[in-house]
Structure formats: C-alpha cells, structure tokens
Design a protein around this nucleic acid. Sequence first.
DNA 1: GCTTGCCCTAGAGTTATGTCTAGGGTTTAG
DNA 2: CTAAACCCTAGACATAACTCTAGGGCAAGC
Lengths: 153, 153
Amino acid sequence: MTYTIKEVAEKTDLSIYTLRFYDKQGLLPFVSRNPSGYRAFTDGDLHLLHTICCLKDTGMKITDIRQYIAYVMQGTSSIDQRKSLLQAHRQAILAKQAAIAKNLQEIDMKLNMYASPAAEELVGQELAVAQAEKIANDLPNPFQVAMRGSENH
Amino acid sequence: MTYTIKEVAEKTDLSIYTLRFYDKQGLLPFVSRNPSGYRAFTDGDLHLLHTICCLKDTGMKITDIRQYIAYVMQGTSSIDQRKSLLQAHRQAILAKQAAIAKNLQEIDMKLNMYASPAAEELVGQELAVAQAEKIANDLPNPFQVAMRGSENH
DNA sequence: GCTTGCCCTAGAGTTATGTCTAGGGTTTAG
DNA sequence: CTAAACCCTAGACATAACTCTAGGGCAAGC
C-alpha cells in the first residue's frame, strides 16, 4: 500500500507544496514514482520523512539534511558518516537548548517584575533612570512623556 | 557616556547592518541621535537591546518585538499589555522547548543505533525492509544496490 | 585643509524556505 | 466520453531577516 502526496500532506504537517519543494531540493530521493510519474510514498518513506522533519524542526539546514539522506541512500557503508553528522547536530541542539533556557530565564524575570505588586513603581524607576541618562548626555528624550493634567493650557 | 553603532556591534553579536535594520524596523525608537544625526546608545539602550535579542533568539518575530518596544516607550501605563505579550511568548517558548526535546530524543535513538555494535546489521535490516516494500508495490528501488563482487563479468 | 575612518540614508541584493500559477497529463464516477 | 479531482513540472512570487552599495556628511590627526 502506498500514499499519494495529498495523503502524506494530511498525515504530516507539511503542505503538498513543501513536499514537492523538498523533493526538488533532493531530500526525497527515496520516494519512487508509479508508471504515471506520480510519487508513491511507502510506509518506510514516511518514516524517513519523519526523520527529515526531526532534523528540520531542530534547526538543521536543508543542505545538511540532504547530505544525511544521501548517506542513507548509500546503505550501511555510510554509518560512520551518519553518526558524525548526527553527533554534530546533537551538539548544536544542546547549545540551542541552553541558549533558549537562558533567554527564557530573563524573560521570566521581566514577567516577575510586571506581575509584582510594585510593578508600576519598578517600571517607573527604570524609565526614570533611562530618561535621566539621556538628559545627562544632552540627548533628546525619546520616551513618551506622561501627562499630569498639564495638557489643558 | 554613550556608544557609537560600531561599539555596540562589537559589544553584541549584531552587525552594524543589523542594528540599522532593526532601527529601520522600528525596534530602536529609544536610541537618540547626537547633533550630527549619529545614533548615541546609552547603557539603558544596551539593556533594552539585550531584551530585544532575548526575544529574537527565542523566536519572536520582529513585528511582535516592535509591539513590545512600543509598549515600553509608552511608559508604565502599558504594563498589563507587556505582561500578556510576554506570557504568550513564554508559552510559545515552552512549546518549542518541548518539541525540540522530543525531536532530540528521536535523534538520540538513531545515534544509539548507529553506535551499537550491531549497527551494520540493524541498518542493513531497515534498508532491506524498505527495499522489499518498494518491490512489493512494483516500484523501482531507489536505493544504491550494494555490489558483492558481481561487478566484474 | 586633506586624508582616513567613522557616521548617515535609501534602496538594491541575498539567502533560506517555502507558496503559488500556468499548462498539461491521469483517474474515476456517472 | 466527459467532468471533477487528482497528479506532474517549471518557474514566478512571497516573506523574513538580513547584507551590502552608492552617495554623501562629520571628526580627528597630520
């Protein structure tokens, strides 16, 4: 049993366009064609496509995914190269995870400030410091100046 | 004390081009100009720029960052909106982290297979199954066929 | 006062990853 | 045997996020 490109698009979260684009980019050399030239996806093809999505969703570039797939097409002789490629990518993912975690921490600190009962005071102080810094350097104040009933004159 | 665009580029991992691009995109309304029209970055500006990078590096689009910065320029009256915006982004980050972790697990499973002493056998079996599936569906076999000394005839 | 090395803007060009259109063949149900 | 709903390719278009170029002003050292 095989699947048409439409069925595969429905099974994955890729569009028909994206599937054809991936094929054009050399990511799907394993997908055979039927006598009419239509792509016929097997279950094994879906499995490989899933691997491609894993790599893509963790930030691997299409050219590197193409290299990995080329190794797969080559058979068991490329196991060492596949291992190196995936190990390098694994390190890249770990680095990215660490970076995201660090940035998330900073965003959480901001959120804590905004959620604090003293939020208005804290934010107001930060703003006041930033504005004072502009004045101290003879620069125009780019922040919106709060009106305190002085607008009616 | 203020910094030139070049100094800021050196302090951050953004290029001068990117800094000017961000300014054009409305991400840096807080950066004042000196009498010659040169951007003069204060320490407070660097702090805000750092926040921008946190958001960008966790996948926030420039239009959303622009919205956040607009709220900041608006002063303390926008604290609630900032909180909602960051909370929504926080959820997006958590979802992305979970997706990456899941994909990483699958990549690690592949790596385990490739690192196994039986790697060649396991990979060979997978390949054989995939090829059998093609044959069973009357499809051409797209995989490279291994030569076993049959090439010299 | 002239050269060098900054700074500026406007806008063109690039890269990566899709997304869509035009033109045409195939399959299936009536 | 024809209409609807698929499939195909080639190539144009889109989008985001830069990156660079051209043309020109400012500032510091000789």
